[in-house]
Computed example of a mutant assay.
Amino acid sequence: MTKLLFLGSGCAFTVGTDNYQSNMLLITDTGKKFLIDCGSDIRYSLYRQGFSYLDITDIYISHIHADHVGGLEYIGFSSKFDPRCQKPRLYTDKEIMHNLWNNSLSGGMKYIENEIVTLEDFFKPIEIDEDKAFYWENIKFNSIKVIHVNSASVVTPSYGLFFEINGIKVFLTTDTQMHWNSLGKLYQQADIIFQDCETAKFPSGVHAHYQELLDLPLSIKNKMWLYHYQPGKLPDAKKDGFCGFVQRGQEFDFSSSIFAENNFTAINSTFV
């Protein structure tokens, strides 16, 4: 049994305790846990589900916005100064790995008592070649470069994940604009899609917006779960052909028989 648990399913600026940022845990039947993104509220969302930094041995980072990396300082310091912990393995794209320390983490983590340290003092970095595969617990993950922010002169990518468990093909977009030309083939290949979805009244342009996703073929929407949405009232996603909006605490079980029986529905373990 391998499950994907959404520690939160909200956007970067989610407020309150009803939801958290869209960080996830992939949990194997052996109890191993793979944290997918590590946002600034991870210390709350982990504990809400009964976990802590002690459970985190492997982390994947899709890009360096704070809702995806802002919790690494917490994980890094907590692990370093707790003798029960080993350095967590940190997986990300080569360029992101370089920028992660220099542009995001070093300001708060570079100096400790009597020592100047580097990223390697907190984590075991595993660099991923662009659009290449890596493995965790015998699961092959394909890193998918997607367009997140295009400033005209510089494109800031995010790296989604395409992986297969028990014959079930999963596409996790992370943060991406809606580009059918680059994503359409992956949408078609996947058995289940987790799609970041902006629901704001005034679109930012850096995420796929719900109104754009409405135009997707029904065959794609029928296997698509929406996450990374704004607080407030949500559209009726099921009525519009989607699987629905992911709720904080939902688990998706990739055991073949359960998955087939539930037809892409999730085990809802939301804490009240």
Rank of each mutant, 00 (worst) to 15 (best):
M1K: 00
L5D: 07
G8V: 04
A12M: 06
F13H: 10
T17G: 12
T17L: 13
T17S: 15
Y20L: 04
Y20S: 02
Q21N: 05
S22Y: 06
L25S: 10
T28R: 03
D37V: 11
D37F: 10
C38W: 00
D41T: 08
R43K: 13
S45A: 07
Y47K: 10
L54D: 07
D58F: 03
D58T: 14
Y60S: 08
Y60T: 08
I64N: 13
H68C: 13
G70Q: 01
L72T: 14
E73N: 13
Y74L: 10
S78N: 11
S78W: 10
S78H: 12
K80P: 06
K80Q: 09
Q86F: 06
K87L: 03
P88V: 01
R89G: 04
T92F: 02
T92S: 13
D93T: 06
D93M: 06
D93Y: 05
K94V: 08
E95P: 00
E95D: 07
H98T: 12
H98K: 10
N99C: 04
W101Q: 01
W101D: 03
N102C: 05
N102I: 08
N103R: 09
S106M: 11
S106R: 15
M109L: 14
K110H: 04
K110F: 00
K110S: 07
Y111L: 09
I112C: 01
E115M: 11
I116W: 08
V117P: 08
T118D: 11
D121H: 09
D121S: 13
F122C: 06
I128S: 03
E137L: 03
N142W: 04
S143P: 01
I144H: 04
I144L: 07
I147W: 00
I147E: 03
H148M: 04
S151V: 11
A152R: 10
T156N: 13
S158K: 05
F162A: 11
F163A: 08
E164R: 08
G167E: 03
G167N: 00
F171G: 03
T174E: 14
T176A: 15
H179C: 08
W180H: 10
N181I: 08
L183R: 10
L186K: 11
L186H: 13
Q189L: 10
I192N: 06
I192L: 12
I193S: 12
C197S: 12
C197M: 09
E198Q: 02
T199I: 01
K201D: 13
F202A: 11
P203R: 08
S204N: 07
V206D: 14
H207Q: 09
E212G: 10
L213S: 12
L214N: 11
L214D: 11
L214I: 07
P217V: 08
P217A: 05
P217T: 07
L218D: 09
L218Q: 13
I220G: 05
W225G: 06
L226C: 12
Y227T: 15
Y229G: 00
G232T: 10
G232F: 07
G232Y: 14
K233F: 09
P235L: 00
D236W: 12
K238M: 12
K239E: 15
D240Q: 05
C243I: 04
V246P: 05
Q247R: 15
Q247I: 14
R248N: 15
F252W: 13
F252D: 00
F252C: 06
S255F: 00
S257D: 01
S257V: 00
I258E: 01
F259M: 01
F259L: 01
A260R: 05
A260V: 05
N262H: 04
A266S: 14
A266E: 02
I267P: 01
